[in-house]
Design a binder for these strands. Structure first.
Lengths: 237, 237
DNA sequence: GAGTGGTCTAGACCACTGG
DNA sequence: CAGTGGTCTAGACCACTCG
């Protein structure tokens, strides 16, 4: 783990435990340099992470401050734009997956294009319903090239695909590109998410990449509108 | 303007004009160092911006590559998570604002909390419909403290509030925090956005900050679901 | 081994703020 | 003025990939 990650984690912990008075700036960068025995660039990079997470903001000439609203918000259905991961987000304990469809097909033009594969590459086609505390939460339609993500089984799908990728296959997940939109519910949504014919859906379309830049997942996650908020932080440059 | 911004702008221009073959890595960081006569940290910071914009990705040990899908996408209704700004996004030419409500009130508890003001601070309460090419596009409900954003008039509201803030008032806009959700249409939505009773709405709740960390806007932007996609890039650390 | 990006250092100067 | 964050330098070593 990089030093700046360690420092970011430590500072995040302190902020969330209330070890800094949120009415005053936190310890300045030069002092943190001395505390963590590193250069100022490293401290800055660590704090950059917390700024991107919406936990801190900076005032030039003043200092670095805690975003007050951020400390309170420990809401349930919240996603920020940092992590790729699904089970991780709300903790695996109360999450349950129902497999609605699982087969292997040749990809459509659209799927092939998003996964950067050709039309002859066998591709998993997965439809899963994720429940949380027994309540339907999100309906996922996922495409993955079988050449990259090998040996998928129903057993794995009941748990976390991401664990299988990182732990069993030893691959490292890189970033992702997402598009978020509202949509009308389809038949599948109504059936599995138990939503009414006029309940909106919040859809997240995602292409996820391995650290080597290769796309490994093209997916559409359809969320109940009353159980999902997507959070993001804009940093001006 | 900072040097890394200039480099990022130049590289963005080159990528979009197709000056690099997207099947091969772009010029490596050390060579860019020599071309732009700067240190490697500065080149890296410039490329970081383009990675965050989803234009580039890096492969350690290989090089930096162009995201192919990014170059094609010059879609209409696209927002990324970098800029604060509304008129800027799609160009002011074909944008038109209809003022539906404009008055000054004491804030509610909720508004006061989000703007970090007390209940005695007079606050603008604005409802605007934004049209693009004559078509209703987004319905905005905005709260701004009259102590910070002074001298608002209907004339200003017909154009860009952001121009007024930055140019007339001489303030600098910092970042923003957003929450994105789907919602059912209300009466106002149906009336002004011309949407049907079961057309979903994509709502963006935003608290925007000045560069000095003070919130100046709390707003709810309600978009037609068929005209708006929110894009975001996740970078794994 | 050579080439790539990832991290880190120990400084430096600048821009902005307050007193 | 001193103190803050913003930018930048000119190196260094590491981790990873390829041939």
């Amino acid at each position: 783990m990089a030093k700046y990650s360690d420092i970011a984690n430590e500072m995040r912990r302190r902020i969330q435990r209330g070890e800094y008075d949120s009415n005053y700036p936190i310890t300045d960068e030069v002092s943190l340099t001395k505390e963590f025995l590193c250069s100022r660039m490293t401290v800055k990079k660590a704090l950059d992470i917390l700024v991107a997470e919406g936990l801190l903001y900076r005032k030039r000439g003043h200092g670095t401050f805690i975003v007050k609203s951020a400390k309170e918000e420990k809401l349930v259905n919240v996603l920020n734009n940092e992590n790729v991961g699904l089970t991780k987000l709300i903790g695996a304990e109360h999450v349950e997956s129902v497999i609605i469809g699982f087969d292997i097909q040749f990809p459509s033009q659209e799927v092939a294009a998003h996964l950067s594969i050709d039309l002859q590459t066998p591709t998993y086609h997965i439809i899963r319903l994720r429940k949380w505390h027994g309540e339907p939460y999100v309906l996922e339609r996922t495409y993955m090239p079988a050449t990259i993500i090998k040996d998928l089984t129903k057993e794995i799908l009941k748990g976390s695909i991401y664990d299988h990728i990182t732990e069993t296959l030893g691959l490292t997940i890189g970033g992702a590109h997402r598009k978020i939109r509202a949509d009308k519910p389809g038949e599948l949504d109504q059936e599995y998410l138990h939503c009414a014919a006029n309940d909106p859906i919040l859809e997240v379309e995602q292409v996820a990449y391995l650290n080597i830049g290769m796309p490994f997942e093209y997916s559409f996650s359809r969320h109940r509108y009353d159980k999902f908020v997507f959070k993001t932080v804009i940093i001006q440059r």
